[in-house]
Design a protein around this nucleic acid. Sequence first.
DNA 1: CAGTGGTCTAGACCACGTG
DNA 2: ACGTGGTCTAGACCACTGA
Lengths: 250, 250
Amino acid sequence: MHRHIADALYREILSGRHPPGARLPAEVELAERYGVARGTVRQALADLGADGVIASRKGARRVVLGLPLTQSFSELLSFSAWARALGEEPRGRVVELTRREATAVDADRLGLPVGETVYYLVRVRLLSDTPVMIERTTFPGPIGEMVATFELERESIFEELGRRGVDLARARHQMEAIPATAEDSRLLGLRRAAPLLRERRTTSSTAGERLEWSDDRYRGDAVSFAVENAVAARSVGRLLSAFGEGGREG
Amino acid sequence: MHRHIADALYREILSGRHPPGARLPAEVELAERYGVARGTVRQALADLGADGVIASRKGARRVVLGLPLTQSFSELLSFSAWARALGEEPRGRVVELTRREATAVDADRLGLPVGETVYYLVRVRLLSDTPVMIERTTFPGPIGEMVATFELERESIFEELGRRGVDLARARHQMEAIPATAEDSRLLGLRRAAPLLRERRTTSSTAGERLEWSDDRYRGDAVSFAVENAVAARSVGRLLSAFGEGGREG
DNA sequence: CAGTGGTCTAGACCACGTG
DNA sequence: ACGTGGTCTAGACCACTGA
């Protein structure tokens, strides 16, 4: 029910009925309108607040802030969802898919012993037939065996894993600017040492089990990442690293 | 009360009494321990969940995930807090502080009319006497007048504004990889076109009033940004932009 | 001063998980 | 089967906002 109310209010905001700056109806009024208790309305409003759509101050009606930068968690993980939101057909060219033994870096990232079997996948992702990103992903053996059966040129790995019941719950991202290596510039069609935005990511299950790690490199002129944070939602932070920490192992 | 309970539980987790992977006491048990209703305990646990400290699944006890990457909102904004966490003395060299008229970009970012008075501050920030970041910040007139009185070589602007009662509530960040301009490379002591991590940020009050915007450029080899997200906390997203969107106005 | 959101209480039912 | 978290109800008091 609270989800339904949040959706209804969000659609009203999208429709322009409550433009940015407008004040929303009071909680009691909404409770009456939807025939629910005030607590349920508050839960719906909390959902919208967490997305940065509305703000609240004690004593005053809630205010519409604007539209959130993204709607779903999966969009941060999924190149495919991002491409579709841009009106593009997500595509990927598989450069390499190998089964190999975990390196020290893999072992650290995935929480496995060195030498354990992992799957290594390299894909170049395209927008409008232009390469914009190189994806170098390592999966633990069991996940890799599933991934190897996917249609990697077209399917979204994350969406497909989700459909098969894999519990993708949390991700940790690390973002840096690096110069393109020889292979990077060849695959992306850029000059040597062009600036790339590197995102290194580790995805875990609810229980903390590591499900993949990836080194994704975006053309600097093709993409930007957005983060929004509020005082109440303290889930974003600057990594405590400097000078060489984080290495060059990619 | 819910804040007190959240703090108490967080301290218990920090102390190692509930190591990562451990299951927390049930809600009813905590309610009994603190002599409050179950709803109050749930509110405290929601606070910890938003910080990524614990996870919950229907039917099972809450699980401790680990420590968040950062404790406070101000750390993402504040170079000073970041430097201190690295054991460094935060320092900044003021390159420029001018009062000028708002450009179209300033007007858009700060929600002001073009030509309105703004303050423009350029600082080079140092770690271990090495320049690692250039900060180009624009403040609306009233905020700028306060900032102009600060000891800009040593003080943290955000911390100082907070102390003076300015309501810094929300920030929107955008991160990209760009090549260093001639001025960038001169101020940072890098070669031309070295990869930089650019963070553009707009900070707002609770009511949505814009308080500053900044174009910060970090040495690519000196810093990385970390983001952690969970399914429940949908506050982080990839910006929907590609190819030139976002401009080169810096 | 009336209205509003923030907080808390004391119940209740349900779907889910774990043992 | 039982305990657990997710959800919802129907009240209540307070601090704050805004007219």
